[in-house]
Simulated scan of single mutants.
Amino acid sequence: MAVYFDERTSQNEERGARRGHRLWWWVAATVVCTVALPVASSGQGASAAPQRAAAVCTGATYTVVSGDGWYLIANKTGVGVSALLAANGATIATPLFPGMRLCLPASSPSTSAPATTTPVSTTPPATVTISQFPVQGTCYFTDTFGAPRSGGRSHEGVDIIAKSGQYIYAATDGTLTKQYIDAAGSLAGNGWRLTRPDGTYFFYAHLSGFQPGVGKGTVVKPGDVIGYVGSTGNASIAHLHFEIHPRGGAAVNPYPAVKAISGC
Results as ranks from 00 to 15, higher is better:
residue 145 F to C: 08
residue 195 T to W: 05
residue 2 A to Y: 08
residue 51 Q to C: 05
residue 48 A to D: 11
residue 256 P to Q: 06
residue 74 A to M: 10
residue 32 V to D: 13
residue 33 C to G: 14
residue 111 T to M: 15
residue 184 A to R: 05
residue 211 Q to D: 04
residue 83 A to T: 14
residue 167 Y to T: 09
residue 59 G to I: 06
residue 12 N to I: 13
residue 242 F to K: 01
residue 159 D to V: 07
residue 150 S to T: 11
residue 190 N to G: 02
residue 91 T to A: 12
residue 214 V to T: 08
residue 89 G to Y: 10
residue 174 G to I: 07
residue 232 T to P: 00
residue 214 V to Y: 03
residue 139 C to Q: 00
residue 3 V to Y: 08
residue 197 P to Y: 02
residue 58 T to K: 08
residue 140 Y to M: 14
residue 55 A to P: 08
residue 95 P to S: 02
residue 107 S to V: 13
residue 124 P to S: 07
residue 96 L to G: 04
residue 97 F to A: 15
residue 221 K to R: 08
residue 239 H to F: 01
residue 121 S to V: 15
residue 125 P to H: 10
residue 254 P to S: 12
residue 122 T to K: 02
residue 72 L to E: 10
residue 203 F to K: 13
residue 253 N to R: 02
residue 233 G to N: 01
residue 223 G to P: 00
residue 159 D to G: 01
residue 217 G to V: 08
residue 249 G to L: 12
residue 28 A to L: 14
residue 184 A to I: 12
residue 165 G to E: 03
residue 221 K to Q: 12
residue 122 T to G: 00
residue 182 D to R: 07
residue 213 G to V: 04
residue 108 S to N: 13
residue 214 V to N: 01
residue 202 F to D: 01
residue 170 A to D: 02
residue 134 P to T: 11
residue 50 P to E: 07
residue 258 V to Y: 06
residue 168 I to T: 10
residue 162 A to S: 13
residue 70 W to F: 06
residue 42 S to E: 15
residue 79 V to T: 15
residue 223 G to S: 06
residue 248 G to T: 11
residue 142 T to M: 10
residue 150 S to R: 11
residue 219 V to G: 00
residue 255 Y to E: 01
residue 155 H to S: 06
residue 52 R to K: 09
residue 70 W to M: 10
residue 76 K to I: 13
residue 2 A to W: 08
residue 86 A to V: 05
residue 41 S to C: 14
residue 38 P to W: 07
residue 132 Q to T: 07
residue 180 Y to H: 09
residue 121 S to D: 10
residue 242 F to Q: 02
residue 61 T to S: 02
residue 36 A to W: 11
residue 137 G to V: 06
residue 74 A to S: 15
residue 98 P to R: 13
residue 98 P to E: 12
residue 176 L to M: 13
residue 43 G to E: 06
residue 195 T to Y: 02
residue 229 V to I: 09
residue 154 S to Q: 09
residue 246 P to D: 03
residue 205 A to F: 04
residue 228 Y to I: 04
residue 186 S to V: 13
residue 5 F to Q: 12
residue 107 S to P: 00
residue 54 A to T: 13
residue 190 N to I: 14
residue 241 H to E: 00
residue 145 F to S: 04
residue 120 V to L: 09
residue 173 D to E: 15
residue 247 R to F: 12
residue 189 G to P: 05
residue 95 P to A: 06
residue 53 A to C: 06
residue 253 N to C: 05
residue 119 P to F: 11
residue 74 A to D: 03
residue 137 G to A: 15
residue 142 T to P: 04
residue 137 G to W: 03
residue 245 H to T: 00
residue 110 S to N: 09
residue 189 G to V: 09
residue 128 V to A: 04
residue 111 T to S: 15
residue 117 T to M: 14
residue 191 G to K: 11
residue 57 C to K: 02
